[in-house]
Design a protein around this nucleic acid. Structure first.
Lengths: 113, 113
DNA sequence: CCGAATCCTGGACGATACTG
DNA sequence: CAGTATCGTCCAGGATTCGG
């Protein structure tokens, strides 16, 4: 047993999202998809500098499971898989944008060597 | 390789905050402090259902290191230590509030059937 | 070439006991 | 009361390999 097997009680409305937010790349993925509308796996890989394929894949699955991201695969050769935000994903993006903006302005400001 | 294992270049303005956000309890602590203004260690403990002293202590240190939380200790017996948000902490709280609200409304909604 | 599946490790998190 | 010390567990995430 361990972490949160049964914790559906108190603060749990936000728990799913906290778990998501806690993923290192989730916000940046959502933001990237928000910026570009639709991106392929590789494009996301390049957009998010330094992410490993597994992390990207995992995070995309989580985002998909939460209903924030759509995955569309085209049976072509070479295969083509496109990711984009659902309506909820767009809402989510709107609520996280202030954070990203605030964070970058803040760090930009203190960026003094 | 061995070149830029540490991609401190592009998305890094937000990295510190992402690390913070990634902490399981950080948002809830900030929110609690925002709601109550000032809380003691024990009060936070009770407010955040199920957090361990170590996690609380760790997260408070991170928040303090990021300049979002103030720690004031009174040399009384028994000891009294109060935590509250800095100005930046308040700003931070303002940008995370939409997330928490959105998350709880969203989950509240889908818990409905 | 695109993307998923496997393996492994660091560190986050929890439980408990203990000190000033 | 306010933490620290210690120990153990678990999982995110990086490196790598595999399938198509």
């Amino acid at each position: 047993m361990a972490h949160d097997t049964h914790n559906e009680t108190c603060i749990c409305p936000v728990k799913g999202i906290i778990d998501l937010i806690s993923k290192k790349w989730a916000l940046l993925i959502v933001n990237a998809l928000g910026n570009h509308g639709t991106l392929r796996f590789m494009e996301l890989s390049e957009e998010l500098n330094g992410i490993s394929p597994k992390s990207l894949s995992d995070t995309l699955k989580s985002l998909h499971a939460e209903g924030l991201v759509v995955r569309r695969s085209f049976p072509s050769i070479p295969p083509r898989v496109e990711y984009s935000l659902t309506d909820e994903g767009l809402e989510f993006r709107n609520v996280i944008l202030p954070i990203l903006r605030w964070a970058s302005r803040r760090n930009g400001a203190r960026h003094h060597s």
